[in-house]
């Protein structure tokens, strides 16, 4: 029975199916809020207020012709979209949603979660290089450079929370925040800001959408992907958005914890998770609407001049508090 329950958890709730469904809804919300901030309407006609639009886009792309150019590295080119999706879904499984611990949960899983994000970026790099396209190559190069920029402050801010909880286990971090309101908003606030900014870079959204900057290098590393592969990459991006906001919630906003009525945890926990991730999503979307795209050198500059020192400061603050 336990095995079956676990399988159900991985496949349906809060596992893969839930992740994909929620990812589509979040993409819709992201587009809707972005449109709202720009005084537009956003998706409108597919489903009520266009809620099915991301899903419809996905289906449409699945049905499109899948072009594989002659010059590409075929095994890599075909496998990379699946790799990317697998990585982001795996990450989602480790997030605490129904419980204070995720479906996958082990001591030290924070390191695993951060490594996953870097791996996704490496997949992106490979997909750019394997495409054998000039725009893709430039995109891959930029993705790698950008990784050098945002990875260190992101890790530092995540690790500072680990130091705060004296553990590298997301479960420990969430429970310590669940037990004390001070840890929830106090020492981690700077880290949260850094994490959200770096998350924006990880997700390649304005102002850090440099690797796929449309007006400069067409679609960057995505240029050669079409049909099913593009659909999978888009889904990856959506799941990654969800995963990143979930991780920010788990690390800085106390995960799914909140005031609960005993016996109703299984409803209230996912509800709190949704509310908190929505808040992070709103922050991410507002950032997207607020700025112009930076140049790659400016991004790396910004990151090493401001984000890294601030992240170190965050670690110091945490050190003093503990």
């Amino acid at each position: 029975m336990d095995f079956l329950l676990e399988l159900l958890q991985i496949l349906v709730f809060p596992g893969i199916l839930f992740a994909i469904g929620l990812a589509f809804v979040y993409e819709w919300l992201d587009r809707k809020i972005y449109a709202r901030l720009q005084n537009r309407v956003g998706p409108l006609y597919t489903g009520p207020s266009g809620i099915l639009q991301p899903f419809a886009d996905f289906i449409k792309l699945l049905a499109k012709e899948d072009v594989v150019p002659n010059e590409v590295d075929k095994p890599l080119f075909n496998a990379l979209p699946i790799f990317a999706l697998t990585l982001s879904l795996t990450g989602f499984l480790a997030l605490p949603i129904m419980d204070l611990r995720g479906v996958i949960s082990f001591n030290g899983d924070l390191i695993f979660l951060i490594a996953l994000m870097t791996l996704i970026c490496i997949v992106i790099m490979y997909s750019g290089i394997s495409s054998a396209n000039r725009f893709s190559t430039v995109g891959a190069e930029r993705a790698a450079l950008q990784l050098l920029g945002y990875e260190i402050p992101m890790m530092l801010s995540a690790i500072s929370i680990g130091i705060l909880a004296s553990s590298m286990w997301v479960y420990d971090i969430v429970s310590i925040q669940a037990n004390s309101l001070w840890f929830l908003i106090g020492p981690g606030i700077l880290g949260f800001a850094i994490f959200v900014l770096c998350g924006q870079a990880e997700l390649e959204r304005i102002p850090f959408d440099i690797p796929e900057a449309e007006t400069e290098i067409v679609a960057g590393w995505l240029t050669e992907f079409s049909g099913r592969k593009l659909a999978l990459f888009r889904l990856t991006k959506d799941v990654e958005l969800l995963y990143l906001s979930g991780l920010a919630v788990a690390l800085f906003l106390g995960g799914p914890s909140g005031p609960v009525i005993p016996g109703l945890e299984f409803i209230l926990y996912p509800l709190y998770f949704l509310l908190k991730t929505l808040f992070v999503l709103f922050l991410l979307t507002t950032l997207r609407a607020l700025f112009a795209r930076l140049r790659i050198d400016q991004m790396v500059n910004f990151s090493w001049k401001y984000l890294v020192p601030l992240a170190i400061l965050q670690v110091l603050i945490v050190r003093v508090v503990v």
Binding site: R36, L37, A289, L290
Partner: peptide
């Protein structure tokens, strides 16, 4: 100044006219 404008348009009426349908 951009942040203020964005906040304002969050609650403003949308500029789009839903022309052919509504």
């Amino acid at each position: 100044s951009m942040l203020k404008e964005i906040q304002k348009s969050l609650f403003k009426k949308k500029a789009t006219v839903l022309y052919p349908f509504k």
